[in-house]
Design a binder for these strands. Structure first.
Length: 383
RNA sequence: GGACAGGUGGGUGAGCGGUUAAAGCCAACAGACUGUAAAUCUGUCCCUCCUUGCGAGGUACGAAGGUUCGAAUCCUUCCCUGUCCA
C-alpha cells in the first residue's frame, strides 16, 4: 500500500443531472483518488472511524473519503507530530481522500469550554483543560500539516434557536474568518493541492444565508459547505434551509451539507443538488445498538430479538448481515463485546454507502425521481 | 457438639429505633443520539387502584414471638449459611 503525495488540485466534474430535481452525479478528483458523488463520508474524528479498520472501510465498504477532525487531532497527537510521521494519510494508513473539519463544530458542541472572539476561538481542552487559541489562519496551518485533501474553514456553528441579531453577527464573523483564512491559505498553499472549503452560516434565516453565500462566493473556492444545521432545529427546517442555500451555490462546485442526516433524509438533500454529506449517526448509533435497515430501525437490545435467527437486514449484502443472526448481535450488545461495535458500525456504514451508490446510479440512468419514490415508500422513517 | 461472623428487594450491598418501599452498583426493560468531550446518556425497575400525584392502599429486610407511640434496625426462641475449634 503506497500513499502518493498530493499531485493535483481538486477537480469536480458532473456526469449527470436529474432534470426534475437538480440532483447530480459527479466525480470529485483528489490527490487520493476519485470520489463518486453524491457521497456520504463516514466520520473518523480521531483518525479512525470508530470500530472499523481502514481495510474494512477500503476493501469491503469501499469508502472513498472519510472525515477527521482538526480540533481532536490537534490536541492529540498534535498536527506537528502527524506531519513528522508523514501526514495524516500515512499516519492512519488510509490511502484515499480525507476531509478535515476545522473545529467549527466544537464551537457549538464544546459550548462550555470555549470563548469566541473576533480573532478566533479560545478552547479549554476537554482532555486536560489546556488553553488553545484557534484562528482561521492557524486551523488552515494545522490542516495543511495533516495534508487533508479537503480542509474546512474555521466557522462559528451556532446553536438553535438563535436571535436574528446574534445570527447575523455570528455569520459576519464567519465571513471575516473565511476571508482571512482564505487569504492565508492562498499564501501558504501555492499548489492548491489541499482544497479549502468555506462554510455558509446564517442560522435559519434565508436572507442571512444568502448574504453569507454572496460574500463567500467572492473567494472562488473549489467547493462550498452548508453548516450550522442539525444543531437542534426541526428536521424539516434543516432541509428547507439547506435547499435554500444549495440553490445559491455555484453549479460547477461540490456542495457539502455538514452533519446530516437520517437515511431517509439523504435523498432529500441530494434532490436539492447536494453532493457531499457526513454524519455521526451511522457510526455512533451503531455503537449504541441502533441499526439502520431497509425495514427501518432495529434496536438490537430489545428482548424480541433474543432468539431471532434472521439476519439484521435480509436485503443487505454487508458482512454482518451475510454472516450473523440478530440473536447473536443482540448477545454481543448485551455482553458489551467490542465485536458488536465492529459489526454494527460495519452494517450501518454499509447501509449509508449503499443508499448513496443506488441513488447515484439512479441519477446516472435518469431514474432518480423513481428512486426517491420507491425509496421513501420502502423505507420506513427511522425514528 | 463448641466459638465467632452473617441472613436486606432479580444479583451484589448500604442502612443499624422515626424524614426507608429501603442508598449505590450490576442485571433486566425502554428511550435518546445528526460537521463525535459518546463502546455514551436518560428513564423504569414489589403489587393493586385511581381524580397519574413529592397520590391512596397492600405486602416486604430468614421465621415466629416480644419491647416501643414507632422496628430492617433492640430482645427471645427457632431455622439456615460461612469460617475456625473438637
Amino acid at each position: 500500500m503506497s500513499f502518493p503525495g498530493p499531485q493535483s488540485a481538486l477537480r469536480f466534474e458532473i456526469e449527470a443531472t436529474c432534470p426534475e430535481t437538480g440532483a447530480r452525479a459527479g466525480l470529485l478528483h483528489t490527490a487520493h483518488g476519485t470520489i463518486e458523488t453524491p457521497v456520504f463520508m463516514p466520520v473518523g474524528t480521531q483518525g479512525t472511524v470508530k470500530g472499523l479498520t481502514p481495510r474494512a472501510l477500503l476493501e469491503d465498504l469501499d469508502a472513498r473519503i472519510i472525515l477527521a477532525n482538526t480540533y481532536h487531532l490537534f490536541l492529540r497527537p498534535g498536527h506537528e507530530r502527524i506531519e513528522r510521521l508523514g501526514g495524516l494519510h500515512s499516519f492512519m494508513a488510509w490511502p484515499r481522500a480525507i476531509l478535515t473539519d476545522s473545529g467549527g463544530f466544537q464551537v457549538f458542541s464544546l459550548d462550555a469550554l470555549r470563548k469566541v472572539t473576533e480573532e478566533g476561538v479560545l478552547f479549554h481542552s476537554h482532555l486536560n483543560g489546556d488553553r488553545h487559541f484557534f484562528t482561521p489562519e492557524s486551523t488552515v496551518d494545522v490542516q495543511l500539516a495533516f495534508g487533508s485533501d479537503i480542509m474546512m474553514m474555521l466557522d462559528e456553528c451556532l446553536a438553535w434557536p438563535a436571535p436574528y441579531e446574534a445570527a447575523e453577527a455570528s455569520m459576519r464573523r464567519t465571513v471575516r474568518w473565511a476571508q482571512a483564512g482564505y487569504q492565508h491559505y492562498l499564501k501558504r498553499e501555492k499548489g492548491l493541492y489541499c482544497a479549502l472549503f468555506p462554510i455558509v452560516q446564517g442560522s435559519m434565516f434565508p436572507d442571512l444565508r444568502r448574504a453569507c453565500t454572496d460574500q463567500l462566493l467572492e473567494l472562488d473556492a473549489p467547493g462550498y459547505a452548508i453548516g450550522g444545521l442539525s444543531v437542534g432545529e426541526p428536521r424539516a427546517l434543516s432541509q428547507e434551509i439547506a435547499a435554500a442555500t444549495a440553490a445559491l451555490l455555484p453549479e460547477d462546485r461540490p456542495r457539502y451539507v455538514m452533519g446530516v442526516g437520517m437515511p431517509e433524509e439523504l435523498p432529500r438533500y441530494v434532490a436539492q443538488g447536494v453532493d457531499m454529506m457526513d454524519c455521526v449517526l451511522p457510526s455512533r448509533n451503531a455503537r449504541n445498538g441502533y441499526l439502520f435497515t431497509s425495514m427501518g430501525k432495529v434496536v438490537i437490545k430489545q428482548a424480541r430479538y433474543m432468539e431471532d435467527e434472521s439476519p439484521l437486514d435480509p436485503t443487505c449484502a454487508c458482512y454482518t448481515c451475510r454472516t450473523f443472526t440478530k440473536a447473536y448481535l443482540r448477545h454481543l450488545f448485551q455482553a458489551g463485546e467490542i465485536l458488536f461495535s465492529v459489526l454494527a458500525t460495519w452494517h450501518n456504514i454499509h447501509h449509508y454507502l449503499d443508499i448513496m451508490r443506488r441513488m447515484r446510479h439512479s441519477i446516472v440512468i435518469g431514474q432518480f425521481p423513481a428512486f426517491v419514490k420507491s425509496f421513501q415508500s420502502d423505507s420506513p422513517v427511522s425514528d
